[in-house]
Amino acid sequence: MSLFNILDIAGSGMMAQNVRLNTTASNVANANSVTSSAGDTYRAREPVFAAQLQQQVTHQHGPLGAGINKDLEALGGVRVAGIVESNKPLIQEYAPNHPMANEEGYIFKPNVNVVEEMANMISASRSYQANVEVADAAKNLAKQTLRLGK
């Protein structure tokens, strides 16, 4: 695996965690919104990640060019397969004096748990940082390899 492939994999991880952070921020921003009907209420969203494997065929010539040795090298990464809405029930409150209350006096709040969202935000931030450190280590290895030629 080349250093460029490592950078691609770390980059895909950073992009995925960026989507996770944006989704979490959207959930937190809408946590206190109120509507008068369940159909219009914001629902918590979660990104779905999928492993991204790609087979790369590398050709290496044997001694004196006697033949071609084909090695399969699996390249990895992650991609965002989609963003799904949570199927947890919405929060329904009886508040007849609220301006957004429906005819029965109920208001609907999103199914966002702010504590869970903050834990997701910390986890995504640390995962992003881990990918940055992998990319930085690969960059430093490339620099050291270039210095060997001096």
Score class of each variant (00 low, 15 high):
residue 51 A to N: 12
residue 98 H to G: 00
residue 140 N to L: 11
residue 86 S to D: 10
residue 48 V to L: 12
residue 134 V to I: 14
residue 1 M to W: 07
residue 123 S to T: 14
residue 68 I to P: 01
residue 109 K to W: 05
residue 62 G to E: 07
residue 124 A to D: 04
residue 145 T to G: 14
residue 125 S to Y: 07
residue 2 S to H: 05
residue 1 M to H: 10
residue 106 Y to W: 08
residue 39 G to P: 03
residue 47 P to N: 04
residue 100 M to L: 11
residue 96 P to K: 03
residue 47 P to C: 05
residue 106 Y to A: 00
residue 90 L to P: 01
residue 129 Q to P: 05
residue 60 Q to H: 12
residue 86 S to E: 11
residue 133 E to R: 14
residue 44 A to F: 01
residue 99 P to H: 05
residue 43 R to I: 03
residue 29 A to F: 07
residue 62 G to A: 11
residue 51 A to P: 04
residue 34 V to C: 00
residue 16 A to L: 01
residue 63 P to T: 12
residue 146 L to C: 04
residue 101 A to E: 00
residue 53 L to C: 02
residue 21 L to C: 06
residue 20 R to S: 05
residue 127 S to T: 07
residue 26 S to G: 09
residue 12 S to E: 05
residue 59 H to V: 10
residue 150 K to H: 09
residue 61 H to C: 08
residue 81 A to R: 12
residue 76 G to Q: 10
residue 130 A to Q: 06
residue 140 N to T: 10
residue 69 N to T: 14
residue 105 G to M: 02
residue 6 I to F: 06
residue 40 D to L: 09
residue 111 N to V: 08
residue 136 D to T: 15
residue 116 E to F: 07
residue 130 A to K: 03
residue 114 V to S: 13
residue 64 L to T: 12
residue 4 F to G: 10
residue 12 S to D: 06
residue 37 S to A: 12
residue 14 M to Y: 06
residue 50 A to T: 12
residue 126 R to E: 09
residue 19 V to K: 00
residue 66 A to S: 15
residue 20 R to C: 02
residue 90 L to V: 03
residue 100 M to P: 00
residue 40 D to N: 13
residue 107 I to G: 00
residue 95 A to C: 04
residue 137 A to I: 15
residue 78 V to N: 02
residue 39 G to W: 02
residue 129 Q to Y: 05
residue 117 E to P: 08
residue 18 N to R: 14
residue 101 A to D: 00
residue 107 I to M: 00
residue 12 S to M: 09
residue 74 A to P: 09
residue 150 K to F: 07
residue 108 F to K: 01
residue 13 G to D: 05
residue 94 Y to M: 00
residue 8 D to S: 14
residue 36 S to R: 08
residue 122 I to P: 10
residue 134 V to Q: 07
residue 145 T to Q: 11
residue 6 I to A: 12
residue 20 R to A: 09
residue 25 A to V: 01
residue 120 N to M: 07
residue 144 Q to V: 14
residue 35 T to N: 11
residue 43 R to K: 10
residue 28 V to E: 00
residue 133 E to V: 09
residue 94 Y to E: 00
residue 35 T to M: 04
residue 1 M to S: 13
residue 12 S to G: 06
residue 17 Q to L: 05
residue 122 I to V: 15
residue 115 V to M: 14
residue 13 G to F: 01
residue 27 N to S: 07
residue 98 H to E: 00
residue 11 G to C: 07
residue 142 A to T: 13
residue 128 Y to F: 15
residue 33 S to T: 14
residue 3 L to D: 03
residue 23 T to V: 10
residue 91 I to T: 02
residue 126 R to N: 11
residue 73 E to R: 14
residue 63 P to I: 10
residue 141 L to W: 09
residue 62 G to V: 06
residue 5 N to C: 03
residue 56 Q to G: 08
residue 9 I to E: 02
residue 125 S to R: 13
residue 18 N to P: 03
residue 100 M to F: 02
residue 73 E to V: 14
residue 97 N to C: 02
residue 123 S to P: 02
residue 121 M to A: 12
residue 22 N to I: 04
residue 4 F to T: 11
residue 35 T to Q: 07
residue 67 G to R: 13
residue 137 A to H: 13
residue 6 I to G: 05
residue 97 N to Q: 10
residue 111 N to F: 13
residue 142 A to Y: 12
residue 124 A to R: 03
residue 145 T to V: 14
